[in-house]
Amino acid sequence: MLAVNFLLLGAVLFSIGVFGVLARRNAVMVLMSVELILNAVNLNLVAFALMHGNVDGHVFALYVIAVAAAEVGVGLGLVLLVYRNRRSIALDELSEMKG
């Protein structure tokens, strides 16, 4: 099995995630796209671990999974707070800090 298979799949998922972050207006959808990006990175880490024959990549992937779980928890808490204050989670309406 060739290493480029996994790495190219990771690249495709990463690009789709970046498109989602740029294109989506709903904050929850943006968080979902961020999950796509993090999973692409994890796929690369696991492929590199297999390529080099040690488990350091697996350890990094597990840490990334844990950080992603924390990120989703805090992110959805923020989204909930924004929704409670403004009755909307459209990201382009949050422009109070615009210069």
Partner: peptide, 20 residues
């Protein structure tokens, strides 16, 4: 659900995919 300038994301994503 999408931004007004969402189509701009397509060339950006394709460019990124090409580089990667």
């Amino acid at each position: 659900l999408n931004n007004r300038g969402w189509a701009l994301g397509i060339p950006v994503a394709l460019l990124l995919l090409g580089v990667l």
